[in-house]
Amino acid sequence: MRGTVKPLWLTEMVAVWGYVQRNYFLTKRYFMWEVVWLVYVTINAMAITYIGAGAAEFGNIAINTERYMTYLLVGALLWNYLSMLFDVLSETVSWERWEGTIEYTFMSPSSRITHLLGMGFYAVVYGVLQTALTLGVCYLFFDLDLSRANYWGALLVLVVCSVSLVGFGIVAAVLPLLSPEKGQQVSYIVSSVLLLVSGVYYDVSVLPNWMQAIATVSPVTYALEGGRVALLEGAGAAELWESIRVLLVMGVVFVPLGIWVFHLGEVYAKKTGKLKRSG
């Protein structure tokens, strides 16, 4: 308000809260859709877990069914969380363009980092809650092998991975700025490639070499590795360090890279007039 001068950091913090609160309001308004999505995600995770139960029926190979089911469920839950985080970030532009609010957001004085930070923060909180709920429901249905689980270790891996995935998501978010018509579709392709190569439901070692090479630059690969050893083996901080170290390096690289790429995309959109609602 005129006459009220706040320090810059405070106005940016107010704006971060603005994005978080707006997304909360939207979640409330679309509550039934949120319920539908939660049911879908939970049933999907259960269906994938049942693949483990049915695996023993094939051939004469002895498998530890409980462990395999837990392996699959952990993959399903982590992928649900990580893909949701990626999708929310990558839809930052296309969603606002669809609502018609993109120009108002982009002409506001809050910085793009603030914008993306607000989106990322809400996605992390929302994703953690959704994943915890899904895990709770799955607990009721399956005899999971989580006797040795190190939940805090898994949470730490998840938090560190969230940072690098936010950077990854920001890079994907720029696509609708470059091409209003096709950008979002391309980000879905990126998401599906992450699903294929990151070892969500199988070990990365079963993939062809060229896919394994792509897996090495996917933060999801290391999040799944770390998350699984924490939950299935009860791995402590020392054993998790390798995954965490790679994720930290990826975070340090991907977040500034994402913001820089987004900035270039924004400048391009402003030069070509592609920020406009209709594209």
Partner: peptide
């Protein structure tokens, strides 16, 4: 409220 927060 959202619009206002973007301006601090």
């Amino acid at each position: 409220l959202y619009g206002a927060k973007l301006y601090g």
